[in-house]
Amino acid sequence: MAKGRVGVNEERCKSCGLCVAACPMKVLRISDKINKKGYRPVEQFKEGCIACRMCAITCPDVVLEVFRLEDDKACNA
């Protein structure tokens, strides 16, 4: 299974939680931080992201970027 990582633009997040519900691996949660607009931005709090993009597809505020992680070696395989 692919490995991934979620990048969060914290200032854009409105804590709606749609991405948390959409994540099949349950690696996202609303954090304890507070952004300038007073919202608690989402965070990836554990490993296990599979780069499926469901969080970003459902996010209404283009808060999230998704990265696929590959071992350098995998390129040679």
Partner: peptide, 10 residues
């Protein structure tokens, strides 16, 4: 580890 961005703001 190589990172490839697969989702970003249009």
């Amino acid at each position: 580890m190589k990172e490839t961005k697969i989702f970003e703001k249009p």
